[in-house]
């Protein structure tokens, strides 16, 4: 075992890269949940964003256009969810799960001709970090500011807290939620494209491999607070990178234990976070997962 092979600066840089996809997906889902909607289709929207971004970048040769395509692709898929749950009032949990399954299959279909293709490389800024890492942090900062200090953020929180009261005051609950869902879809799409264009970078079927579910867990871990999403994502990314480094350094623990450790630690952290039931309920949007139907 040679732990001195692990360079802390490289470790931090690779931690930031490893956590960016889930960070992007989680901040999008945070906004969706703040509006009172539970969209379990994050995984499906991520993988759709991954292939849409990949295809767009390959066809145009521009990674930036790829990311825009990914955001549009993720948002388009999420609008299907919005139509089903907000207009047709379908069950959010079942619809979200269906969206994940649909996204996985749909992306595999589009991706047939892109297997083995190399995407255009993205420019790096410092320490091998690309612009998207900082865009992700920027989105978190903006989301925090909007939710805390602006009227739009206040209305969004109000809709998630009590949709009947918001409706009685004349706010358009369905419209606001649809916008939040589309934002969530776009962020998940960006997260997916970050995987296929930068982190990996190539296209393989099912390449998100559960990142969307981790993003959902991070929202709960963060108690629906934007900066804690950053913390949660870095924690998860850090453990992922560390276990890879430990494997490379030849630690004498079976590889399977190391690879399962990020997920195991996520579960343990979630259990600790939700141990105090009343405090968790205090932070969660009160209308989370409940359908809204104007009764008059």
């Amino acid at each position: 075992m040679d732990l001195s092979a692990i360079n802390p600066i490289v470790l931090i840089a690779s931690l930031m890269v490893a956590s960016t996809p889930i960070l992007l997906a989680a901040i999008g889902e945070l906004v969706v949940e703040k509006s009172g909607v539970l969209n379990l289709g994050v995984e499906g929207m991520m993988i759709t964003g991954a292939i849409c971004g990949f295809a767009m970048a390959v066809e145009t040769g521009s990674p930036a256009l790829g990311f825009i395509g990914a955001a549009l692709g993720g948002a388009a898929l999420s609008l299907i969810f919005a139509f089903l749950t907000q207009v047709l009032l379908s069950n959010q949990v079942a619809t979200g799960l269906a969206l994940t399954l649909f996204g996985l299959g749909f992306s595999a279909l589009i991706g047939q001709s892109y297997i083995g293709v190399k995407p255009p490389t993205s420019a790096t800024l410092i320490l091998g970090l690309d612009a998207m890492v900082f865009v992700g942090i920027g989105i978190i900062a903006v989301t925090w500011w909007v939710l805390k200090y602006t009227r739009v953020g206040l209305i969004l929180r109000a809709v998630g807290e009590n949709h009947d009261a918001a409706h009685a005051l004349g706010y358009k609950v369905v419209l606001i939620r649809t916008a939040a869902i589309a934002f969530g879809g776009a962020c998940a799409g960006l997260g997916g494209a970050y995987l296929s264009l930068i982190r990996v970078p190539q296209w393989t079927e099912g390449m998100t491999s559960g990142a969307g579910w981790i993003a959902l867990a991070i929202v709960v871990f963060a108690s629906w607070k934007p900066w804690r999403v950053l913390l949660g994502a870095y924690l998860f990314g850090g453990i992922t990178v560390l276990q890879l480094n430990l494997q490379a350094a030849g630690v004498k623990i079976p590889v399977e234990y190391l690879s399962m450790s990020p997920y195991l630690i996520t579960i343990i952290v979630l259990v600790i976070m939700s141990a105090d039931r009343t405090r968790t309920a205090l932070n969660a949007p009160a209308m989370l997962g409940r359908s809204f139907h104007a009764s008059n």
Partner: peptide, 12 residues
């Protein structure tokens, strides 16, 4: 039935 939001403060 008060159309209030419990998790928000009075001014909000």
């Amino acid at each position: 039935h008060f159309s209030l939001f419990e998790a928000l403060n009075v001014a909000e």
